[in-house]
Computed example of a mutant assay.
Amino acid sequence: MQLQYWKGHVYVGHLFSSGFSIVDVTDPRAPRALGYIAAPENTWNIHLQAADDLLLVVHAKDLWKKFDIESSYYSGSVGSRLKDEEQDWSAGVAIYDVADPSSPRQISFLPVDGIGVHRLWFTGGRYAYASVLPNGFSDYVFRVIDLANPSSPQWLGEYWLPGMNFGAGEEPTWDSEKWRYALHHAIIAGDTAYSSWRDGGLALLDITDRARPTQISYRNWSPPYGGGTHTSLPLPGRELLVVADEATADELADGLKRVWVFDIRVPANPISISTFPTPDEIDYAKKGRHFGPHNLHENRPGSFVSEEIIFATYQNAGVRAFDISNAYAPRQIGAFVPAAPDQVIDPRPGGRAVTQTADVFVRDDGVAFTTDYNGGLDVLQFTGKD
């Protein structure tokens, strides 16, 4: 699933094998798997973040053991459906010292009372940001982590869409049996959190006071579009926001998903101005499994940071590079589609040996790492748009 690069090493969270792996990529042409750290029983570690010699790893209920039919995971509120589950999993954030990147050493754990943590944003400094599903909430919400002392992290402020806190008597304004309003994650730029809420769309949050996040603006285009808002990448220098909607169903059963470009010059009024071109050199809808966006390279400090070149994974269509120097007319400038995997790791019904590129991380020298649910890790070289 997610991967992170730190000091010549890549950490890879696993979707179906629990735990995470450490890979030495000091020679990117000859990666070496150094080790695997197993998750606790019934727990997954699918997302992680590395910065400041710290590695933050999510702990949450392994939801594929509950929702082996994928459509049931994406349809309706997870927290509402699991509120009576007896907890037999680990929930929270594990923090590792990776001063020696080849040998992570756990130094603390920040627990949560509920399903756990889905994804994180941490680029160093005092604060990290998490999507968290605590007891009493219908699905994942936004929380701030105070890392002033990494050996004793603390939860700080939080925010949720009105209607998600059923424990406090709130009721949703959406069909909670059909739509899934849940924070996937937020990316932070300055004092603004750009948060993606799956079928709940996009919210810009003012986090000047980390203990009291407040809403700046909110947009949702589902319906008529199919939801699944996954990643919102701010380009602060151009006052733009690139937003990817995740394709979450086989053979386009949830509709064709897109990557959107928003003008955010007025943060209280984000306006969509274009979409990325959809890969079409073959009929990817007929290729099988998921076709469409999943994740974006997130311009993390120290990585390949650009406000004109954007990398996006498209699952069975591999990874793509786009030039958005003209924000009104994005164009594709590069692509890599891995060969079909040799084996199927995905245990869910309908598993097939079809490319499913999930995540991408690009180093500042253009070396790119991508993950595939079944196919493992690919190492690529981006040579530029010309």
Rank of each mutant, 00 (worst) to 15 (best):
S176V: 00
S90N: 10
I187T: 02
T370W: 03
T208Q: 15
I46P: 02
P270F: 10
H185W: 07
G334P: 06
T370R: 11
L202Q: 00
P279E: 04
G237C: 08
Y140C: 05
R81G: 01
D323E: 02
D68S: 15
Q215T: 15
I95Y: 04
L110W: 06
D84P: 00
W221T: 06
V243C: 04
F361H: 10
E239R: 13
N295C: 09
P223A: 12
Y73W: 14
W121Y: 14
W221V: 04
W260V: 00
Y5E: 05
W197Y: 12
N326Y: 06
G13V: 08
E177Y: 10
D68K: 15
N374G: 03
D323F: 00
A358L: 10
A33R: 15
D100F: 03
G366C: 09
F276S: 01
F311D: 01
Q356E: 14
I271N: 09
D323G: 01
T214D: 11
L3E: 06
K287A: 12
E86L: 10
S176Q: 06
K7H: 08
T43S: 09
R320T: 10
R105G: 02
A335Y: 12
A51T: 08
P301V: 13
G13T: 02
T248Y: 04
L233Q: 03
Q154T: 15
V117S: 04
I22D: 01
N269M: 14
E307F: 04
S303P: 03
L63I: 13
H184M: 04
V354W: 06
Q381H: 15
A51D: 02
Q315S: 08
P338G: 11
L240D: 03
D62P: 02
A30K: 15
E308T: 15
W260E: 01
G163W: 00
V379Q: 07
G116V: 07
G8I: 06
S272N: 10
L233E: 02
F361N: 09
S138M: 10
Y140N: 08
H185E: 04
S18V: 01
P236W: 01
H185Q: 12
P31Q: 01
A285W: 01
G201M: 02
G35Y: 13
L55D: 03
A339T: 12
